[in-house]
Amino acid sequence: MQATPQVAQSANHRSPVRPLSPRSSIYRWRAPMLASFAHRISGFVLLLFIPVYLYLLSALTASPEDFLRVLDGMHSTVGRFMLWLVGTALIYHLVNGIRFLLLDAGFSETREKMRGNARFSLVAGVIGALFLAVYLW
C-alpha cells in the first residue's frame, strides 16, 4: 500500500483508495477530454428532454385544440430555444457516440487521431447548432 500525495487513505477501508476517475481539476484541457465532457452534458440535456417529449407526444396526439396549442408553444421563443437546445445536444451526442463506438471497435487509437476526431465531433456539433438555428428561426 503506497500513499500518493494526491490520494488520501480512507479511514474505514483497508484497500488502498484508488484515484477517483475524473480529476477534472488536474487534467489539461484537450479536445478528447472536452469531447468526453460535452458528451456527458449533451446526454444530460437529452435526459431532461424525455419528460418534455412525453408531454409533447401526449398533447400532439390529443384533441385538435391541444395539437394547435402545443404547435403555438413550439413556435414561441422558449419553444424554439428548447428545440434548438435538444436538437443540438442530439446531433453532438449522435456524432460523438458513433465516434465512441468506433473507438471501442479499435479504430484510430493513436493520440493524434483521437485528437483529430474529437475535434471533428465538436465541430460537427457547432455546425449542427448553426444549421438548426437557421432552420428554427
Partner: peptide
Amino acid sequence: MPVAFALLFAVF
C-alpha cells in the same frame, strides 16, 4: 431517435 426528431420537426 433521428426518426422521432424528424417527425417532431415536420410537425413544427
